[in-house]
Each structure stands twice: as C-alpha cells, then as structure tokens.
Design a protein around this nucleic acid. Structure first.
Lengths: 150, 150
DNA sequence: ACTCTTAATAAGAATAATTCTTATTAAGAG
DNA sequence: CTCTTAATAAGAATTATTCTTATTAAGAGT
C-alpha cells in the first residue's frame, strides 16, 4: 500500500474508533501504519520491532492486543485465520472448511465437481503445489445464538 | 470414515512405512485410527486422550511426533496449515495465499474477476460468513532450491 | 526363535507464542 | 482543567509444541 492509501486507512481507523467508543491511541495508529505499509505479512514480533523506532516503550502485549482490536475493527486480518491449536483430518477428499472465528470449530464442506476450486495459474510459478482448499471464515450458528443471549 | 475405510487406511500406513523404512508401531496405528475415525478434526490433546484407552502410557510428545509423521506420509493433513506464528495483512482486496509449508512464507496471489472464488451455497447454512480465501499449500521455489543443495 | 542395531518412545524439562495481572498513563468527555 | 476509565507497560503466567535423555521395541540379519 502506498502512502496515500495508508493515510486513508488511518483516517478510517479514527472513524471506526469513534464509532466504537474506542480511543485513538498512538499505538493503534503506528501499528496499523506498519501493517498497512508492509508487504510481508508481518507477525507480531516483526510489527513490535518495526514500531519500536516510533514508540520505544511499546510492549509486545500491546502489539498483540492492538492487532486483535484492529482485526475486530476490520482494519486488518489474520492470514490463515490462525487457530490456537492445530487440528487434523484424515479425509483427503477435496473439501472446504468453514472455520468459526469465535469457537474455533471446523465444519467440512464437500462440493460437487462443478464447484471444485480451480487454482490460479499464477500459483504454479511460485512453487510446487501440494494442495489447495477454500477457507471460509465466519461465525457459526451456535455462536451466533450465544451472542444474542448476552 | 467407516470401519472398512479406516482399516484400508491402516493398510496404506503399513505400506507407506515399509516404503519409507519407518517402523510400524502401535502408536502410529492407533493415532491414525483415531484421526481417521473421528469426524471432529481433533487436536493433538484430543487424540492423546482418545488413544490413552488403547495405549495408557503414550506421551503427548509421541502424539505430536506421530501426527507430524503421518502428515509427512500423506495419511492425514493439518486443517488450515497452521503456521508457528500469526501473520497479518491490511490489504482487504480479495486475494489468495500461497503458503510455503517449509519456510512459512506467504505469497499473495491477486486474481482477476473471472478467477474469483465462489462460496458454496452450503456454507451459508453453517453460519454468518465474514470472508473466504483460497489457501494453496506447497513448497516455494526458494525452498525447492535449498532441498537440492543437501 | 535370538540377537543386535537403532528408530521410536516416555517422561519431563525447555521453548516459543500468546495472554493475563497489576500498577500506571493518557484519551477525551464534561 | 479535571476526572473517569480505557489503554498501556512490564513482567509473570499460560498454552501449545518441541527438545533432551534414558529406555524400549521393530524388524533386519543370523
């Protein structure tokens, strides 16, 4: 993302914070700026190191907390929708996964021939492909129900 | 997977082990049996608990090691291709990811309108969808090169 | 079957990523 | 400018996973 786009993103952050009654802190701005201007899908540690030059006293915990809140605000997202634990499957039939971002449950979605995913040509230039699957992220019905109870 | 399919899978494991000069251990058999007969994408802890009834002395380390080796043998796979660290991205333009299973590098793949993924109808019944992206797993060219050096 | 080599294991310590606890700071409402 | 409290820094704690080391057992060779 170029400078202008990053600046626009910061403006969006400010609006989003106001809307959610969240405070616009330097930490939030600098961390979003860093993720938005990076092209390397940085991890928390990399963001921490990069942001230190602007905010020398920042703690790694703030980075984690802020990345999570920026995700909540829909400003950034987590590549691969990391789950706290690795989960395994022995069924090699090509199928997709619906992953509930709230409870971590994984739902299989088996598709027919017509709905099979096609791997973009570009991918073959990057390396040797082992497999590919569609990852659908959302909130499952069960968790949606729970939300209403609160 | 039904009993018969599980048994077939165990046979495949035995063949694969012989081919790779790996020993056919009870731990490998029971762990594969557990993952293959489960429908819940179990994590290491769940496999550990389930397998304890058959092998009361099994250690959690063996479960982790065995799950990894079963993955190597292509008998099971890891849902979501868990990476050791969470990685973030601020670019919400729909795009896919090529994830190198060896070095963890994530490569963006931007696609044109025609190659856009279509979310299977079934997914909408499971819950509220936030987003979806294609995850292509493989080994990047750089890592493929390194392999040859050995 | 018996022996031997060594891959695989159990046990528990160690590590790495992430989250929690608590005291302090500062955003922004009034 | 003051006050409330959300957000933070610091470091301890936790959780998933991996490593270390001594022991066991698979299976090759006899």
């Amino acid at each position: 993302m170029n400078n202008k786009m990053v600046e626009e993103k910061i403006e969006k952050l400010k609006e989003a914070c106001k809307k959610q009654h969240m405070r616009v802190t330097n930490q939030r701005i600098e961390i979003l700026k860093e993720v938005a201007s990076s092209t390397s899908h940085p991890d928390a540690e990399a963001v921490f190191e990069a942001v230190k030059s602007k905010l020398p006293n920042i703690s790694i915990d703030t980075v984690y907390r802020t990345l999570a809140s920026l995700e909540d605000l829909n400003m950034i997202f987590r590549v691969d929708n990391q789950l706290p634990k690795a989960r395994f499957d022995a069924d090699k039939t090509p199928h997709h996964h619906f992953i509930c971002t709230r409870c971590g449950e994984v739902f299989d979605i088996f598709v027919n021939e017509r709905d099979k995913i096609k791997i973009p040509q570009q991918a073959f230039k990057i390396g040797t492909i082992k497999d590919a699957n569609l990852q659908i992220r959302g909130v499952c019905n069960k968790c949606n129900g729970k939300k209403k109870e609160n």
